[in-house]
Design a protein around this nucleic acid. Structure first.
Lengths: 364, 364
DNA sequence: TTGAAAGCGCTACCAT
DNA sequence: ATGGTAGCGCTTTCAA
């Protein structure tokens, strides 16, 4: 292994000089296109590349026109299991195609989100994937519209995963799951088991995800002719603590219910724990249903009956969508000015029956 | 919002022309250094920047000398909670300093790991952080030594998080936690509760993490004068399934034990479940101890007594180490050829007492 | 099959 | 305080 001056990167010139060829030739040997180069020359170059442990400068390559396509994945929190699975899907599909992926976290801060989108634009990423539900305000629509157009103008593209499509003619792709249908199916499952008084913990009020889950549940109640009790709906964040405290408070209030429809598996875990410490057994006394089907769902006792959301696949689909789009652009030729089309993909969800839901005990 | 030809990025020249100034001036207005520019000029430039929605090309900037420092975080699996927390720590600390962070996953594949390290070298990242335990073979040492030197030669730096330091004079930084001490403390806690027959599930044989946890447990057994039964040690992967099946099999074999020392919280969750389905109560009949203290530990019932590992802080510390190193380089001046020093940082662990460990029932 | 040279977009140095 | 311009390392015509 040859010693070099620390910090001074080996360049294509060093390789060319040492191999006794021009930089153009080195570039051809290393480049993606299989430009014809004499076998002997190629070998000589490769030998020097190994000796010098040379790697091309991605920035220079990118500037000069080449460059590896890159996707940026932006999420609130990398430690959220559902998001992590989407990221895994995107990353896997990206790697498969030789793409690079960046991950950035916004910490739910619009400022940081903006900064990151701009940073990604600076990097010249092929696409920016934004993960997670959104608070549906007008301001949000405006903001995303701006992102979409901004990215589009720079030859990039915005992909929204897990949020509803943007209104109007915005150049963004949406990958979503049938959130409301999942909630409808889960609620139906609980109602058809015979439950009539059920506590609903949809999630944060105003979050599109929570709204969809609540709406789905409501539709099921209507379908079963079961009156929907607003007193049995508690909004709150998608975390264990909320599940726990919501159940404790409702119980303390003396409210009566035989099942809990939780907004996420984590909330369901919190609810279950609250029930247990109160001396109620799950599912013997009270049933609990989750949503998401993250690994936690099968790691708690009883294992949660929940709604499976194909998070990882959503990630794969999202990447495929941008990759296809890009291939299309290439076919159409540069500057073809393809109209800013918006694509909406929706994946299915389904109930996974495990052990946390059971018919209510007779007399309750 | 002005319409521009799709795909053609706005450049500094466009801004300069429209603002009626030179590109140098625009660069000064937008650059990091606060080079003196007349307020009026600055305003004019900024106005055009906003009008054109201009962002600098990170590749060009990077090539020309400027550029945002970037850390790359490489891990096996983004969905592992422990790793995700380290990544969060790195990311947070990076953002705080205006650094960018990339995340890549290797899927436990050495090929992919190599490809990623090279990709990161191409990107000219300031540091590559490698997460997670390692299989301690000679080949591994060689491999990492190569990575370290390669990165070092390119002015970058290798940081190993959660693995032991490399042997010899290798230019790499290590950030680790006191793995063995944590295991020792956990085992002591269990032994001091009175347990004498305990099932140990250290993790994958050959993984440094698992070796350390086993060694720590062993030392505690010695200290308590409790014979260590090799028949009560089961290696296996760090997942729920292993915890579950290991306990089932040992139980089926008719082996007797009153406590389980699991290699991770996830394994502990699996073990707990196996115990429960066999009709054994936790912790009444059998105690279970975890390791890692990821959120899952407090989401299961009973909440796990476990070893807290400061994952997120390790991430922060790792980033700080490279950032300081870099600042040192700047002070020393370019090409100062600082010796390739290896820094080893170790953070503490401690037992978190919750509900899964209790003295064995009398007579057992 | 190979080489020479013109940029890619930006920063930093040297002038003014 | 501002402008001109030489590179940064690479890819890609255009010539030979």
């Amino acid at each position: 292994m040859s010693e070099r001056q620390a910090g001074r990167r080996v360049t294509i010139k060093d390789v060319a000089r040492r191999a006794g060829v021009s930089v153009a030739t080195v570039s051809r040997v290393l480049g993606v296109s299989n430009y014809p180069v004499a076998a002997a020359t190629r070998d000589r170059v490769m030998k020097v590349v190994r000796e010098l442990d040379y790697v091309t400068n991605a920035h220079a390559r990118s500037l000069a026109g080449g460059g590896t396509p890159t996707v940026a994945i932006l999420m609130n929190n990398i430690t959220g299991a559902a998001f992590a699975h989407v990221a895994k899907g995107v990353e896997g599909a990206a790697t498969l195609r030789g793409w690079l992926s960046l991950v950035g976290t916004t910490g739910d801060d619009p400022e940081r989100e903006l900064a990151l989108v701009n940073a990604m634009r600076q990097q010249g990423v092929a696409a920016v994937v934004l993960l997670g539900g959104a608070y549906d305000r007008t301001e949000y629509q405006t903001r995303m519209g701006r992102f979409a157009r901004s990215l589009d103008a720079a030859g990039s593209h915005l992909v929204l995963v897990g949020r509803p499509p943007l209104e109007g003619d915005v150049p963004a792709t949406t990958v979503n799951y049938d959130n409301e249908a999942g909630a409808y199916a889960m609620a139906s499952h609980v109602l058809s088991a015979g439950h009539r008084r059920v506590l609903v913990l949809p999630g944060p009020a105003g979050l599109t995800t929570a709204q969809g889950r609540l709406k789905g549940a409501r539709r099921a109640f209507d379908a079963y002719g079961v009156p929907f009790d607003p007193g049995l709906v508690r909004h709150g964040s998608y975390d264990y603590e909320h599940g726990f405290s919501a159940v404790r408070e409702v119980l303390a209030r003396g409210a009566d219910f035989t099942a809990v429809l939780a907004g996420t598996d984590v909330v369901a875990a919190g609810a279950t724990q609250a029930l247990k410490v109160t001396g109620l057994r799950v599912p013997d006394d009270v049933s609990v249903a989750g949503y998401d089907d993250i690994p936690l769902a099968s790691h708690v006792t009883p294992q949660l009956t929940t709604v499976h959301v194909p998070y990882e696949e959503m990630g794969r689909v999202a990447l495929r969508a941008v990759a296809d789009r890009r291939a299309g652009d290439v076919l159409a030729g540069p500057g073809a000015g393809r109209p800013a089309e918006a694509e909406h993909l929706v994946l299915g969800t389904h109930v996974v029956v495990r052990d946390s839901v059971r018919p209510p005990r007779p007399g309750r």
